[in-house]
Amino acid sequence: MSQETYDSEPEATRREAGEAESSRANRGWWDRNADEYQSDHGTFLGDDRFVWGPEGLDEAEAALLGPADALKDMDVLEIGAGAAQCSRWLAARGARPVALDLSHRQLQHALRIGGGVPLVEADAGRLPFRDGSFDLACSAYGAVPFVADPVQVFREVRRVLRPGGRWVFSVTHPIRWAFPDEPGPEGLSVSASYFDRVPYVEQDERGDAVYVEHHRTLGDRVRDVVAGGFRLVDLVEPEWPAWNDQEWGGWSPLRGNLIPGTAIFVCERDGRDGA
């Protein structure tokens, strides 16, 4: 859920928001807030770390994409790459990553940091790649929470993956939507129905959405994965580590030690070439 500030504070509400409105709102939000986001979180993310979420679970330890020494010469698509930190980590292990993001400003930060990773500005629901272009695909809190039709994204990911390719993505843990998005004690009381799928929307004084995030239950996410043509291999719920004393929006040691904050879905494309 959004934690950034605006010159004119938007109204937070729950209402329907379709694919086009969600894409337009979130492209604008990330373009406006990319500088602040990288300033606030860039140190934690590093320039070439692969962190799955605010808990700090590192791909170097988790190996959810597979053993690090097996990444060499793999073609990897990072979706919602931001400043391409994860892609740089992959490149350092000999992979051939491509970093894709909807936000032009986020990709400008990727250029600022450097590293030579190919960058692509595009919508995750319409990937500009040929069928079977990649061995792996990954997304650390990118794209999936912000789209109205995640199955369309998953089908596109499946299309550009080779048979047997792995798709790993992290999102806000669905249980968090039942709690206020606050890091302190006020964030530990259930305030909404876990089963309320109405999108969270921040809108301006005209009622135009400026930020949209879509809630899905855990069961919804699993069904979306299957409908997208994948097999769920693992579902990882990172515990809050003792070393991590930071607050990141509604994520904090207090809440992280009591309720999960991130869900990571490890999926594999089936071996069939057809959709």
Results as ranks from 00 to 15, higher is better:
54 P>H: 05
133 S>M: 12
54 P>V: 08
100 L>S: 01
63 A>V: 14
68 A>L: 15
133 S>C: 14
97 P>Q: 00
57 L>M: 15
68 A>N: 06
79 I>R: 02
104 H>S: 15
55 E>Y: 11
70 A>I: 12
77 L>W: 03
90 L>F: 12
105 R>D: 11
100 L>V: 13
82 G>C: 14
56 G>D: 00
33 N>P: 02
99 A>H: 03
133 S>H: 08
51 V>R: 01
109 H>L: 11
118 P>E: 12
71 L>W: 10
69 D>A: 06
94 G>P: 04
133 S>K: 12
80 G>Y: 01
58 D>W: 12
40 D>T: 03
84 A>R: 03
76 V>T: 04
108 Q>V: 12
64 L>H: 04
128 P>V: 15
33 N>W: 07
71 L>H: 06
40 D>S: 06
71 L>G: 05
90 L>P: 05
116 G>I: 06
124 A>G: 15
113 I>H: 06
46 G>F: 01
52 W>H: 07
112 R>L: 13
56 G>W: 14
104 H>R: 15
134 F>V: 01
49 R>I: 06
45 L>K: 09
77 L>M: 11
43 T>H: 13
129 F>S: 05
123 D>H: 06
92 A>M: 05
86 C>A: 15
101 D>T: 14
99 A>R: 02
56 G>R: 09
101 D>F: 09
99 A>K: 01
109 H>K: 15
93 R>C: 07
124 A>V: 11
118 P>H: 15
84 A>H: 02
103 S>W: 05
128 P>Y: 13
65 L>F: 12
60 A>H: 13
53 G>F: 05
121 E>G: 02
51 V>D: 01
92 A>N: 02
123 D>A: 14
110 A>Y: 07
80 G>C: 04
112 R>Y: 07
43 T>L: 13
90 L>K: 02
87 S>V: 09
34 A>P: 01
59 E>H: 10
121 E>Y: 14
40 D>R: 08
45 L>F: 13
118 P>I: 12
88 R>V: 11
59 E>T: 06
123 D>Q: 12
117 V>N: 04
67 P>A: 13
113 I>G: 04
116 G>Y: 10
69 D>L: 03
